[in-house]
């Protein structure tokens, strides 16, 4: 597999497949788990339309908050708050995983060297593609796990990057839960839909599919699964015990 370079125009092609209303509302309202939020936020970096939509959904959240009934607060709450105003702000770590090197490099980058992984994903990976260590899953398919979620908790969701050789068909599979996919390089076709950089796909357990990577460039996708996928084709049944997806 050859290292990827992103064509100058690829970054500016507007995605045509977007997260659904349910996901965008959950992200804007703060009800979406961290792993799924990472996929949505990384799509937002590539999709001005959805950024605008999330801004509007946040305005909706603000309006709903304004219309909340007023609950009486503790008598001393205002005094407690006023007493804290002059205290120096605690030094808090950045709320997002900021890999300093990755950020600095990205800022210095010439347009041609624009990183392939947008924020916030680049921060979670700890750099651009070169920071990843790929593990072979099967012929033509490699994966790299992305750590996401509270260090102490087990959310059950798996976040990883997949690199699929151009022209390769993924084994036919279905999902015990849902799967979110964001294309970062190359493209793939799933039934009749075609997905390119920035495009977002949601599949649930009703979908039994076999995505096929476009010929040529390797296809790199971010995937978030909340349950192991099950391979359903003949080959899949043979492979299932060996593939720890």
């Amino acid at each position: 597999m050859t290292p990827l370079s992103m064509p100058e125009t690829a970054g500016h092609q507007a995605p045509v497949h977007h997260p659904g209303d349910e996901l965008l509302v959950a992200y804007a309202s703060g009800n979406l788990a961290e792993a799924a939020s990472l996929a949505v936020a990384t799509h937002l970096a590539l999709c001005p339309r959805c950024r605008h939509e999330v801004n509007r959904l946040e305005a909706l959240g603000g309006a709903l908050l304004d219309q909340m009934p007023a609950a009486p607060v503790g008598d001393d709450l205002l005094a407690r708050i006023m007493g804290q105003l002059d205290a120096p702000a605690p030094v808090t770590p950045r709320p997002l995983p900021a890999n300093t090197d990755a950020r600095t490099d990205a800022r210095r980058a010439k347009p041609a060297e624009r990183p392939l992984l947008p924020q916030p994903l680049r921060g979670y990976v700890g750099g651009d593609l070169s920071a990843l260590s790929w593990r072979r899953v099967m012929r033509g398919v490699e994966e790299a796990e992305v750590k996401c979620g509270p260090a102490d908790g087990e959310s059950g969701a798996k976040v990883r990057l997949l690199r699929i050789k151009g022209g390769m068909a993924m084994p036919q599979h279905t999902h015990g839960g849902s799967e979110l996919t964001l294309v970062l390089a190359g493209g793939f076709t799933d039934a009749t839909d075609h997905y390119l950089r920035g495009d977002f796909a949601e599949t649930d357990n009703s979908v039994d599919h076999q995505p096929v990577a476009d010929a040529g460039e390797d296809c790199i996708c971010l995937t978030v699964t909340d349950a192991p996928l099950r391979l359903t084709g003949t080959l899949g049944r043979l492979l299932n015990p060996f593939i720890k997806f």
Binding site: H12, L38, C47, P48, R107, P111, P115, L121
Partner: peptide, 13 residues
């Protein structure tokens, strides 16, 4: 944590 875009990211479209 809440993953969010970085408005200064050169990869941002």
């Amino acid at each position: 944590r809440r993953p969010e875009i970085d408005p200064d990211d050169p990869a941002l479209v």
